[in-house]
Design a protein around this nucleic acid. Structure first.
Length: 563
DNA sequence: ACCACATGACTCC
DNA sequence: TGGAGTCCCTGTGG
């Protein structure tokens, strides 16, 4: 009732603001001067037109006869596989199920002998688990862990609570895909989100409509953010524009701590981008890593760069992740495109001083210490494997577990990152989005997976028929049983089913807020259940589900700051 | 329903 | 070592 009233009251606000957004984004894109590498996807090659004899060997194309001539000519459109370009089979979606090209090895594990459809790893995850090795070494790193970390390792595993139902959402919140999410450290209902354009979203999902997008902080990808340790009303952000900013969440005013491109664009070989970021509260340091393999330290109090940059990964490669050990902040974990995650001691930090290198077969998207004891490390690599490295019960030369999981990274997606549940005292629950889709009642959906890294088993796969896009960005709430996920331009808040129902009964506010051009529809009196275009893409059209409990409303108000 | 486009890792030469 | 070509279960807008 109340939602309906809100929906009809404020349609213009949404449309006006969104038009604004689109225009601004177009302008910015025109300014980008980049080499246009036109890929030649010749459609003629894909559909070979062949003139054949009367015996047309059609494989599914239509045949037409030339009615002018006496001898009819059959033209068959021979379909070729879009993957291997051969005839006789077709890769692609058949309904909601994707059929692999049989000429290629398994898409998931990259192993020959089977395709993704019958891949054992896809059916049951335990197949992809390599058990822990028990051999011990006695390196300096082992010593640090033994002395400072081991006592914090918990022994009893509690039951997992899985947020498995969408509680509220903002559809098309950002104008480009979401790149990172962060929960407020003290306010339970505030979620921060960064996007590909460098915009920062501040959403109070407790009040659903309370949402802001600050567009004047960065010019391109907002890769990482961290709340200010001394003041949780501020957030530090690192961007591909080469700057670190500190932004006041109330006003949106930001100060720049560092600019690695003070002379502007001088070509791709010199343009520095910032990816990994971490704060060391004890030392008052902001740590950032760039696309040339270097780590930069910035004093947060004086906003000045501290010392020279240090080469921590192979020269010229991206360092995408930084993480300080929760118990021992002097231990720094980094990961990047040189196929390594590395552990460093901040007290003697210099090039080549890495305590340990964790080797991977491909690029490492993320590496995180376990949130409580800091004794385990979970890494996500684009070789479709989640690796667990245990400093106490295993060693760091080889992973104590490898879990095959589909998170292969397509260049158009935000990289997948397996993230710990900060509330899980057993430090075994990890959440990660799944790339590969599954057929759920005729809909191709990409679930968000909860994995028990102590067994390698899939604890839960969470999906909603309304979310047809991949959800690469996921974050579990530090205190509540809440999952936030970023999927394309939208944000979703998940809660456990029972709790979600309780909330709904109480205030009946299970709401989806819609941004975007199509919001106009909602002001035009069309009913909720039929206005699905706003959150279903092409694949979503074969959904058999109803949008059930969700109410779609345009947003009531939104502060929006443009540069 | 179609197309163009954004865009990054990797292999090969 | 570096540039060109290839990969191709994306998502959006026109």
């Amino acid at each position: 009732m109340s939602t309906r009233a809100r929906r009809t009251s404020f349609p213009e606000v949404v449309i006006e603001r969104d038009t604004d957004t689109d225009e601004s984004s177009d302008e910015e894109e025109e300014e980008e001067v980049e080499d246009d590498v036109v890929e030649s996807d010749d459609p003629a090659e894909e559909e070979e037109e062949e003139i054949e004899d009367k015996k047309g060997k059609d494989v599914g194309g239509s045949s037409t006869a030339d009615k002018k001539g006496k001898t009819p000519i059959t033209i068959s459109l021979k379909k070729v596989c879009k993957v291997c370009k051969r005839t006789g089979h077709q890769a692609g979606f058949q309904g909601a199920t994707y059929i692999d090209c049989p000429m290629k090895p398994c898409f998931l594990g990259k192993m020959p002998g089977h395709t993704t459809v019958n891949c054992p790893h896809r059916v049951a995850m335990e197949f992809g688990v390599i058990p822990a090795s028990r051999k011990r070494t006695h390196s300096s790193l082992d010593y640090v862990f033994e002395r400072q970390v081991r006592h914090g390792v918990p022994s009893i595993k509690p039951a997992f609570v899985i947020p498995d139902e969408v509680n509220c959402a903002v559809i098309r919140y950002h104008s480009r895909r979401v790149t990172c999410l962060e929960f407020h450290p003290t306010n339970n209902n505030i979620l921060l989100s960064g996007d590909k354009k460098g915009q920062l979203g501040v959403w109070d999902f407790g009040k659903v409509y309370e949402k802001t997008v600050y567009g004047n902080i960065h010019n391109c990808l907002l890769n990482n953010m961290k709340f200010g340790p001394a003041n949780d009303g501020t957030v530090y952000t690192a961007s591909s524009d080469g700057t670190i900013s500190c932004t006041d969440l109330e006003t949106g005013l930001s100060t720049s701590l560092m600019d690695l491109n003070p002379n502007g664009w001088q070509g791709p070989s010199s343009w520095r981008m910032l990816y990994g970021m971490e704060l060391n509260a004890e030392k008052g340091l902001v740590l950032v890593a760039d696309n040339f393999g270097s780590l930069h330290l910035v004093d947060a109090r004086s906003n000045s760069k501290k010392g020279d940059s240090i080469l921590i990964h192979k020269k010229g490669t991206k360092v995408v992740g930084l993480h300080c050990n929760p118990l021992q902040p002097d231990l720094l974990l980094s990961c990047g495109n040189d196929h390594f995650a590395r552990i460093w001691d901040m007290r003697r930090l210099e090039a080549e001083s890495c305590l340990h290198g964790l080797p991977h077969k491909r690029v490492v998207n993320s590496a995180y210490f376990s949130p409580l004891s800091g004794s385990k490390i979970v890494t996500t690599s684009i070789d479709n494997r989640i690796r667990v490295w245990d400093s106490v019960f295993g060693n760091l030369d080889t992973p104590s577990r490898e879990i095959v999981h589909s998170h292969d990274f397509n260049r158009h997606l935000t990289p997948f990152r397996a993230e710990w549940d900060p509330k899980d005292s057993s430090e075994s629950l990890v959440v990660i989005g799944r790339y590969i889709s599954e057929n759920y009642n005729g809909a191709a959906l990409h679930p968000i997976d909860f994995i028990d890294i102590s067994t390698g088993q899939l604890v839960a796969e969470v999906m909603d028929p309304n979310i047809t896009t991949i959800s690469p960005v996921n974050k579990l709430h530090p205190r509540d049983d809440v999952l936030a996920s970023g999927s394309s331009r939208s944000l979703f808040i998940w809660r456990p089913k029972e709790k979600s129902e309780m909330v709904q009964e109480k205030d009946k506010s299970k709401i989806m807020v819609c941004n975007g051009k199509n919001s106009k529809k909602f002001g035009d009196g069309s009913d909720n259940d039929d206005s699905g275009d706003d959150f279903s893409s092409k694949k979503g059209k074969n959904l058999k589900h109803k949008k059930a409990n969700m109410v779609i409303t345009p947003c009531k108000s939104s502060k929006k700051k443009k540069p």
